[in-house]
């Protein structure tokens, strides 16, 4: 049983899950591709679709919504603990 995640723009490297996902749970995009969540991702939160290196932008709506201060792996929960605004 996978949980749907919504990617808004093809350039996005995160997607929003529409229900809670457990660590190890499967996440499904609308193009039917899937990935495994490495951590619990609560409903409405973002999951990384690709690895994001330190200093690289987190992209949603096709735009930068913040930067990663440290490595983010594909499947990681992305929120205030691992992304912030560009200072």
């Amino acid at each position: 049983m996978s949980v749907r995640a919504v990617r808004i723009d093809a350039a996005d490297n995160v997607a929003v899950v529409v229900a809670d996902v457990e660590a190890g749970g499967r996440v499904r995009l609308d193009d039917e591709s899937e990935l495994t969540a490495t951590q619990p991702v609560p409903r409405g939160n973002k999951v990384a679709l690709t690895a994001i290196a330190p200093g690289e932008p987190v992209i949603r709506y096709g735009e930068e919504i913040g930067v990663a201060p440290a490595d983010i792996a594909a499947g990681d929960h992305v929120h205030t603990h691992n992304m912030g605004g560009r200072k």
Partner: peptide, 15 residues
């Protein structure tokens, strides 16, 4: 906003 998953003002603004 943060509890719901919004992480930055930019993310909120774009929405």
């Amino acid at each position: 906003n943060v509890e719901s998953g919004l992480s930055t003002i930019a993310e909120k603004s774009l929405g």
